[in-house]
Amino acid sequence: MSSVKAVEIRNLSFCYPDGKTALNDISFELNPGERVAIMGGNGAGKSTLLMCLNGVLQGTGEILICGMPVVKKNYKPVRQKVGLLFQNADDQLFCPTVYDDVAFGLRNRGEREEVIRRKVAESLHAVGLDGFERRNAFHLSVGEKKRVALATALCMDVEVMALDEPTSSLDPRGKRELTDLLKRYSQAQMIATHDLRLARELCQRIIVLKDGRKIADAEAGKILNQKELIASAGLE
């Protein structure tokens, strides 16, 4: 298992239908359990990159998740390995109750209802929201919504978590709680963000995107010391 990379991306490019090239020849790998920050200003291509990971968007080039190529016939197993967290939790929690939301993926996987009930309870516990099953996402705070969204990924026993700006729109305490939570999980994590503090605290490694290209990929400390690089990527 240890020799198989959690994520391998080779020469990935992506062009939106209107002709905008959002990703341009991106390549990198991610080891199991590794946390990497994908940094870049608005429009750098972070969200597009994450959406390519499980085939929601299809670019050119090659992506492998735990050794499986992300191609149509593998979508099902790939999507069970990758937990995608959208920037806006309201887009992710689309069911009438928290329970249905967390159970959605499990039901699609064909689990039995007892298993589902147990897993939902476990994953809500893992994000510190015991007993939230019957609540409606409409009435949760932004921080709680983000945590429910995390639970929807955790319950699927994913091996890669792709988080799109997880701390944007959270207040300082919400940010702290979410950061602490993410530190506890052992999955490989790809965290798209333009929050330097979050990257510094969570990630050993940083990849910097600019206009759809990878312009840096190194240890977090090294990147954060390069003031020019940070500035040219529009991060500060």
């Binding site: 959406m51 499980n54 929601v56 099902k76 999507r79 069970q80 990758v82 937990g83 995608l84 959208f86 806006n88 309201d90 887009d91 992710q92 689309f94 249905d100 159970a103 959605f104 993926g105 039901r107 699609n108 996987r109 064909g110 209802e113 929807t152 699927m156």
Partner: peptide, 25 residues
Amino acid sequence: ERGERVFAAMLSRGYEGPEHWRAYE
């Protein structure tokens, strides 16, 4: 656009169309 994003979120969690959708069972 919200509809598009919600649908992407559904696909990401293994949604394969209404005929496979299980709930309230």
